[in-house]
Amino acid sequence: PEKQTREKEKQQTPLQQYICKLLYQDLNKNTVKIVLKQLRKVKWEEDNEQFILKSLLKLHKGKFNNIHLVASLISGLSPYHELLCIKVVDLLFESVRNQLEINDFKLQQKQISNLKFLGELYNYCVIESHLIFSCLYMLITYGQPNMIPPELASQGGQLIPEPQANSTDQSTDSFRIRLVCTLLDTCGQYFDRGTSKRKLDRFLLYFQRYILSKSHLSTDVEFAISDLLEVLRPHLKRITTYQAACEAVMKMEEEEGEAERQQEKNQVQN
């Protein structure tokens, strides 16, 4: 028989081992301040920074319930290591997008924790609401150019021509609905007044259309949606047919277009 080769063990420096221990074992709500202090004491060189960045993004190695603590670490580090925080957000978003493209069953849990993390970053004021909405619209439109709301479509064409859509989102696949629920479960309750409330109401219309475009929903996803809506908008009447949802979206888009033209007119007059 062939000799079985043992997988090479990763060579880590003591410092790297220590960082791993801090992030994946020691971190809990009582120790978060200590961990933050220890991380700040690390000599902040190129290699170390890269390692900390990678470790912070490996959320699946820690506990799911600890994700908000990692977000609070990021927010605590941000005054001193702005670059690190920017990289974390950039790469997190990229990872979400990458996994939408691959749509690998094995990576689904990782993707869920990614979105939870993104929501928590909003809760800890590391990112602003427009990034959350970017992500939400990405979840329901990626790979489906005809679903994109007009203001985004017009933006997109300007800078760069769009690559071909690769459709990894089948009409029977309801995983993205779960992702939207995860993200809004985490930070949706803060979109309850002002512009962000309006933005969320608008998104929910598109979301309902997306839900209705699916041919079949399993019971657990259906419950996830109704739980979510009950918390966010208890008085919302769910649209029941795809046709009605399309009409509602079209009506809203028309009204928005009208308002925009009105605004332009006013500007010209002034």
Partner: peptide, 18 residues
């Protein structure tokens, strides 16, 4: 797809993927 996702107002930071 692609650029359509970004709701950002100013678009001076770009990413090269793939």
């Amino acid at each position: 797809v692609s650029a359509a996702i970004s709701l950002a107002k100013k678009r001076t930071k770009i990413v090269i993927r793939n």
